[in-house]
Each structure stands twice: as C-alpha cells, then as structure tokens.
Simulated assay, not measured.
Amino acid sequence: QPIRISDADTLVITISDVSGGTAPTINTTTFTLQAPGNLKNAAGTSPASTDTSPAITGDWGLASPTITGAVLDSDNEYVDVTFSQGVYSTGGGAGALDISDFTLDFKKNGGNATAVSISSVTKNDNNALVGGESIIRIHLSITGIPVGEETIEIRPATNEIFNVGGVAAADTETTGVITLNAQIVPVKEGEVIIRNNIINPAKGDYTIITFNLKKSTKVKITVYDLAGNPVKVLYNRTATAGMNHVKWYGKNKRGRKVVLGVYYVVTMIGKDRHVKKVLVVR
C-alpha cells in the first residue's frame, strides 16, 4: 500500500510483528516514496514521486525452530514431536517434512528389540503433512519386542527443517532420550517363554524368562551348559500367582561372563519341567 506524506521532513518506517514483539527485518522489500515535495534529502532535494528505496533484506528476525516436547505412544507406534513454531522442508517457507528430515538413534541396552527406524511422518491426526505444522507425528518401525530397556532419540537432520523465514533447526535439537514401553507377549497359565534368546554379555544383553502361575508355586530356574553342568541358579523360591520375570545376564555363579555357546535354561514349576535354549555370542 502506498504511503502518502505531507508537510514532513523525515520519513520513519517502523515494522513490528503482529504480537508486538521486537521489530524484525524483512525479506527483500522495497518502498516507493510518494511525497508532494516537502520530503527532502540531506542536500535539500525532493525525491520524485516514483523513487524507490533500495531493497531491504533480512530473515524476519525469527529464531530457529526448537523441539519443545515429545510424547511416545503407549504402544510405541509413534512419537509426537512438538516444535516451537511451524516447520517446513525448504528454506522458502514451503514443503512438507518427510522421514529424511529426521535422524533416529536407537540403543538396545540389553533389551529384546534389535532395531528402530522411522516409517513415516504425518500430522498428529495421522493425515498427510502439508508444511507449517508445529506437531509432527513420527511413526516407528520396531524389530523385536521391546522390554522397557531400549531407548530412542530423535533429532532434525542437518539443514533439513526450516521455519517460515528460512531459518534451519539445529541438528543438536533433540527429543531427549525416550525409553520404549515394554510390550509383554501374553503368556498362558503354566507356560514359560524366553525373550531375547541370543545374547552378548559383553554388551550388557540379557535373557528374560517369563512364566505365568495360576497360584503361588515353588519355582526353580537353573542354567546348564551343553555338558549338563549347572552354570547358575537364577531363581529358587515360591513365586507369586500371575506374571513373573527373571533375567539372566550371561554370567555364572561367580559373576563372570560365560564363554560363548549354547546354554539351557531349565524352569521347574512344581513338578513340571520347561527347557529353553539360549545362545551366547560375542
């Protein structure tokens, strides 16, 4: 819109954002001066009514987008990541984000899940992104069944996520370390299952023996080597009714890491004998 000035010696243009915050600079903008002759420069010359200011450039003064929150779904299906402002895939303030705009760091931490990746990104109502959203739903693909030990951390990829002014989110922004929720496989009464039956004790891996009791029962769990020699008694007491979990970290009764090879976990529930195989690797 033209700015008309009369009886003025000085033209001052102040630009502020709609929230009344600090006046920003502006992207490649020009002003056309239309004055009746009273607006003069230092030499006393009036500009023509069609004169145009030099281009004024800037970035609107917007701070880079930051991650302000992250919420993991109870079933580990997705993480809702909240940014401080609407975000785009290009520096021109346009374009929807995709999976290449994020990096994900997964740590097993001795758990059962072996890998996590990003399968897709959407709005938090699961509709397609269009650009400018401040909450991004990051859908996860998980290999194996998490046991509550595994963690993920999500960050913006370098120079891939931008605000409307073209300022990139730093790749040091992070959701923080997020622990995956344990997803327990249903176990029938009297049944024994093994989770994570291939372990590397040097990496902190462990096996989880899970059993479900109808009532309190005497339970003994012993690890044997291939020759039938007892390696360690993991559990030897009366267990309560319901779900029970026992961990073996691949160590013998002296607390030393066992040699690699096949081991048998024998669970005695009353007079019932359950045998499961575990492979120790390096």
Rank of each mutant, 00 (worst) to 15 (best):
T28M: 13
V265C: 05
S117C: 06
V130N: 14
V233R: 10
K108T: 00
N126K: 15
I67A: 03
A55L: 10
A42N: 10
D225G: 02
N200H: 05
T32N: 14
T30P: 07
D105T: 11
V258C: 08
I15K: 00
V167P: 04
I3H: 12
L279D: 11
P186N: 15
T267I: 01
E149F: 12
P146H: 12
L226K: 11
P201S: 04
I26V: 13
F102M: 06
T175K: 05
R273A: 10
P201L: 02
Y206H: 03
K203M: 09
K257C: 04
D105M: 02
V79C: 08
N163S: 10
I199V: 08
H245T: 14
G110H: 00
L129N: 05
K271V: 11
A157V: 09
E189S: 14
Y249M: 07
A241V: 06
A113W: 00
T238V: 14
T217Q: 13
E153K: 15
I209W: 01
G58N: 09
Q1M: 15
V278M: 04
R254Q: 08
N163V: 06
T90S: 15
T68M: 07
D101G: 05
Y264G: 01
Y224S: 04
E189G: 13
M268L: 05
D9M: 05
I13N: 01
I56M: 09
L11S: 03
L279Y: 09
K123P: 00
N76T: 07
Y206N: 01
V185N: 14
I152F: 07
W60Y: 14
I194V: 15
V177P: 06
S117L: 06
R4A: 14
A227K: 14
K215D: 12
K271M: 06
I161S: 02
V281E: 11
R282M: 13
Y235S: 04
R237F: 06
T217G: 03
S89E: 10
A239Q: 05
P156K: 05
K232G: 09
P201C: 03
Y88Q: 03
R273F: 01
T174Y: 05
A70C: 08
F162A: 07
R282Q: 15
V192G: 08
K214N: 11
T68Q: 06
A227I: 13
A170E: 01
F211C: 01
K257D: 14
L104M: 01
L180F: 05
A94N: 12
T122E: 05
N126V: 05
T174K: 08
R4H: 12
N38P: 03
G61R: 02
A94M: 07
A241I: 08
G270P: 05
L62W: 04
G166H: 01
T114C: 03
D225I: 01
I13C: 04
T179F: 09
T175Y: 12
T22K: 09
V12W: 03
Q34D: 15
T30H: 13
R273Y: 04
E77Q: 15
G44A: 05
A42V: 09
V278N: 02
S216I: 04
S84A: 14
T158L: 13
D51R: 06
T29K: 13
E153F: 11
A168I: 05
V164A: 15
P2Y: 07
T25G: 10
T222M: 02
S134W: 08
R282K: 15
I142R: 10
I161C: 03
R254P: 00
I154Y: 13
L97C: 06
I56K: 10
I5K: 07
A8R: 08
S6T: 12
V266Y: 04
S19Q: 01
V18G: 01
G58E: 04
T45I: 09
